[in-house]
Write a protein that binds this DNA or RNA. Sequence first.
DNA 1: CAACATCATTGGTCTATGCCAATCTTGGCA
DNA 2: TGCCAAGATTGGCATAGACCAATGATGTTG
Lengths: 240, 240
Amino acid sequence: MSTDVAPATPKYYLLKTEVLGLIAGLQPGTLIPTERALAEKYATSRTTVRQAISELVAEGKLGRIQGHGTFVAPPKVTHVRQLTSFSDDARTQGLRPDSRLIALEVVKSDAGVAAHLGLDQGDPVTRLERIRLIDGEPLAHEIAWLPGRLPRFKSSLAKAGSLYAVLADVYGVRIADVEDTVETALAGPEDVRLLGIEMGAPLLLVHRLARDAAGVPVEWTRSSFRGDRFRFVSRVKSGG
Amino acid sequence: MSTDVAPATPKYYLLKTEVLGLIAGLQPGTLIPTERALAEKYATSRTTVRQAISELVAEGKLGRIQGHGTFVAPPKVTHVRQLTSFSDDARTQGLRPDSRLIALEVVKSDAGVAAHLGLDQGDPVTRLERIRLIDGEPLAHEIAWLPGRLPRFKSSLAKAGSLYAVLADVYGVRIADVEDTVETALAGPEDVRLLGIEMGAPLLLVHRLARDAAGVPVEWTRSSFRGDRFRFVSRVKSGG
DNA sequence: CAACATCATTGGTCTATGCCAATCTTGGCA
DNA sequence: TGCCAAGATTGGCATAGACCAATGATGTTG
């Protein structure tokens, strides 16, 4: 280790700083030394190395693949989250958005969904579950609930691609305002499976409630975005 | 452990689910068994117990104090982040906001601050560093940069309390729109010291750029909010 | 009775080590 | 040449144990 920092600074944090220096300026994708090699080089245990590496992975600075190695990660994607759709926003940034449909079904609303959409529990809602991808990489897991049954929804969605485009063009639903709640969460087994991330990786958990001009809820969505790859932007004007 | 989940589910995650069941319905502040006791009860190592507990702490479900024990944490605070100030918003929710001033000084702007405020590097900026508290508990570490030197700023701020109130009432600066960028980050030694959280705890890192009606930047702020105690809400209307 | 020193308890950090799982390389074989 | 099996490499998970640091209880002392 190079410098003596504050006395209470744990060793793994010093090592983390050290590795940060190692990867500064390296191209994304570049492999760094193996955990066992780092442990030997810095005269520490592999456990401590793993703790340092794990935090750098959680911060989106490194990535790792079992059996392959640990590498420098690409920079985060920024998402301007206004009234625009995920796809439109990505395209304006020159990125290639995509969606993978997991489920599209009419279900009975549970207590939580009903409360947010202003329905009674058990009322039918359309449930749309998708994986959002940017440049082929899974970025978010999203479940949207829309009130009622929507005829010909699947084919319309397949044609238009964007949920908001379908709502506007097919059903004449105009979204007038949205409320987004953002908090941190940690990845569980399902997130690991769907997003290809590590157990315990930090997520941005976003809940969105969208209403039409009359103030009637038209969409309630829960999205889990990868915290290591994603940045969220919201703009507010005072005139509104 | 009670049930057999998916084969690939790590043991610490099963234990995490187990502990979640243990604390369901308990009052905030209730102590749970010690790490050593849990390790023995569930026939595992303390390392594994700590990994489970650590994630629950990161998620804001548990808290812990060295030498004392591990306890059920209070629920998260929700912050409606619009054009309103931190203090005003907290008060409307019946919470008691407070600020602890760390530094208030005029400094030369570095490259990053200058770029965001539309200044040249080295131009003087007023730097305001504070800790935000809710009900006496540190919630965020905030550094705001304002262009130029502001006469009588310190006394005005002490009197008004809110930065936005001072800008409006004393300097006639009206904020017309803001852009917030939200991402996850992990706590380092400074965050640990200032916010009283654990190393590696997830944070919500928020950058705010505020402009006046003419589009001139008037504030650039970096805030680190405790991810375990905080939720961020943004509202967007389409009329704006 | 109050203040202080002592010690057990509890969480915080780190080591050394083993085995599993995914990946990649190598070499033999058809 | 092309394919496949076997082994080496690398990260993923877990154990057992040691020592430190903060806290709180206990008992002693002024």
